[in-house]
Design a protein around this nucleic acid. Structure first.
Lengths: 213, 213
DNA sequence: GTCTATACATCGATAGAC
DNA sequence: GTCTATCGATGTATAGAC
């Protein structure tokens, strides 16, 4: 819609700032005035570019969802053997969430309140036709066929891995309050150990007994 | 504050209704008008009992947190051997979250936006003095000392178990959109399988090789 | 305690000048 | 494209009658 560099700069500045504010405060908590202030412009200009708050939010949400989907898909594009692939996925996925710790909760908040429109966006963004043939499903099915891991519904494994990776970051405030002694806590170290713990539990939970491959 | 049965009924009706609305829509999404309508009273009465929206919300939040904490603590009060205790915990915890699937996200939303006041509430509610001696931590430490499971930071195990149990319910909209074929999905059955999957992965991920106890 | 009516503040959105 | 000024809607909170 807008082509010259000046426009593009303003629009991108808006998008960038709006993303920060929406991710911090949510759709309802965010204020157009605050977005304008932080972007160094005024409210009217926000409406000039995106007409309504909802449309601006929608842009942000889709962008974030696309980015998140892309990150995961990229992590799965690999020819590593199963053990390395799993280790690699857990490590890199935790890194991504570590750097963007507010994103998962942001996405889940939206999806829990959003209607079917949102679901269509998800399907488009992830380019889903047949759930049976998702790369992640195939990876586990192959490992099962090769006898590397026990037979189990791959979806259950995926939910377990993602949940285990995400939960620390989604629940960090309550986890730290309940479980962690703040006087003696090295967060980076704990997250590093988190990677190893998730891998160890999941991997050895899946590898058949009697094999120490 | 209020003692006669009539008052008590109104107050409880407000609390009950407000909980529904706040859990569905969050602090910012909830409307005092809607709470009043659903409770069959008018807005002014809401303010008569709880002065402000924030105070009403705070009551609800603390009640929910207390209830959730109580549920978990009760699940851990058991003298079962480790394997049964873990199986029992996972099964019952998933049942609780199943029946109250909006609660975890509600709590996390609040905690992610809330300040230190909220953290004090958490500490009081869970009655936390020394994180080292939490029942959940002790359970895993004992199992390690008895050689039943491998040595590992118990906090990492706890985060993994809770995350694996919760994630399906927190992320259900996106999980179902991406991972599940809606034309052929038995939710109750899937949740039942979820219990077994979480237990199998975690338990066999923790039990030392060479022992099939 | 409970109601109706209304004050008061906030915020998204638009009009109109430059 | 960008600004200032302002409208109009919505929602919390209160005044005051019963």
């Amino acid at each position: 819609m807008v082509n010259n560099p000046k426009d593009s700069n303003t629009e991108e500045k808006i998008l960038h700032t709006a993303m920060e504010v929406f991710v911090e405060k949510g759709l309802l908590g965010a204020r157009m005035q605050e977005i304008a202030d932080r972007a160094g412009i005024n409210k009217a200009l926000l409406h000039y570019y995106f007409r309504t708050k909802e449309r601006l939010y929608s842009h942000i949400f889709q962008f974030i969802l696309k980015k998140s989907a892309g990150d995961i898909i990229e992590l799965l594009n690999s020819n590593l053997p199963f053990e390395d692939l799993l280790k690699n996925f857990i490590s890199k996925y935790i890194d991504i969430v570590h750097k963007n710790h507010r994103i998962p909760l942001f996405i889940m908040k939206e999806l829990s309140s959003g209607g079917n429109t949102v679901k269509e966006v998800v399907k488009n963004v992830f380019n889903i036709k047949n759930t049976e043939e998702l790369p992640a499903i195939r990876i586990f099915k192959n490992a099962m066929e090769e006898g590397r891991i026990v037979t189990m519904d791959p979806r259950q494994i995926i939910i377990t891995v993602i949940g285990a990776c995400l939960f620390y970051f989604i629940g960090e405030p309550i986890i730290r309050t309940i479980l962690i002694d703040e006087n003696n806590f090295d967060r980076d170290q704990f997250i590093k150990e988190r990677k190893k713990a998730v891998f160890d539990i999941v991997y050895y939970g899946l590898v058949p007994r009697g094999e120490n491959k």
